[in-house]
């Protein structure tokens, strides 16, 4: 018995620097069961079964690891939690913008991670280590909500024009969200040093409030708000 099928069309960015002179968009037609919806990642994996030269990253396939960030019909998102039925055809898939392409949908994230590293994304505490653990009140713990959930998929930073223009100087929304996550943590004692390190005209202040970051974050986080809070903290410290 043959299943009823439908065809979904794709245009996927292809570039293999070892053989291609320049990037090009390759068209694919994928047949899937008519009554079946699926996540975009599943479709891309089916395309790879037809053309195994296609390269992309993925791991958890459930929106947790942050490895399959890509530009889907002009908007950054995670393929694994994007429903095929929600997308207009032909579905155009490109690598995350603003970062060097290693191959096809795989980008070099070094610049992104370098900015993340700059904000010292770990607790710094000069007080003596307590016998058991550093306690935090439920109210203080609550301040980390909306910050700690970031999976570093880079969808936000690579949709931010300020990050495109100054990837070595502007921390970018993802890094700044994490910067604030540690600034506001009651167990961290390095708040002043953290703020001091962000006080130049680029690291934070290159944010122009475009809010592309908020628009695309697949975890529903709000880097623009965190950036505003960092600004307020800087203001409170007296610049």
């Amino acid at each position: 018995m043959s299943e009823a099928l439908r065809t979904v069309s794709f245009k996927i960015y292809r570039f293999n620097p070892e053989v291609d002179l320049k990037p090009f968009m390759k068209e694919y037609q994928l047949s899937i069961p008519k009554d079946k919806d699926m996540m975009l990642l599943e479709a891309i994996m089916r395309i790879k079964a037809l053309d195994d030269t296609l390269a992309f990253r993925r791991s958890c396939r459930e929106g947790v690891c942050g490895s399959d960030g890509m530009n889907i019909n002009g908007r950054n998102g995670l393929a694994c939690i994007t429903l095929l039925s929600a997308l207009k055809e032909p579905i155009e898939i490109r690598p995350l913008p603003g970062l060097p392409v290693i191959r096809d949908l795989i980008v070099d994230m070094s610049a992104f991670y370098a900015q993340y590293e700059k904000v010292k994304p770990y607790l710094i505490n000069k007080d003596p280590v307590p016998a058991k653990e550093r306690l935090q009140s439920p109210a203080d713990r609550k301040k980390l909500d909306g910050l700690y959930e970031c999976i570093l998929c880079a969808c936000c930073s690579t949709s931010c024009p300020s990050f495109w223009w100054n990837p070595e100087k502007f921390i970018g929304p993802a890094g700044l969200l994490q910067a604030y996550r540690f600034i506001v943590d009651s167990r961290d004692t390095a708040k002043s040093e953290r703020l001091e390190a962000l006080s130049d005209p680029f690291s934070v202040f290159r944010c122009r409030g475009v809010m592309n970051c908020v628009d695309v974050c697949p975890k529903g986080l709000n880097p623009t708000r965190a950036i505003g809070q960092i600004r307020s903290e800087l203001l409170a410290e007296g610049g």
Partner: peptide, 18 residues
Amino acid sequence: MVSSATSLTGNGLRDWLY
């Protein structure tokens, strides 16, 4: 900290406030 000699005050917050 990113240095920037040519900005108005060299400090992000001050530039922004000005």
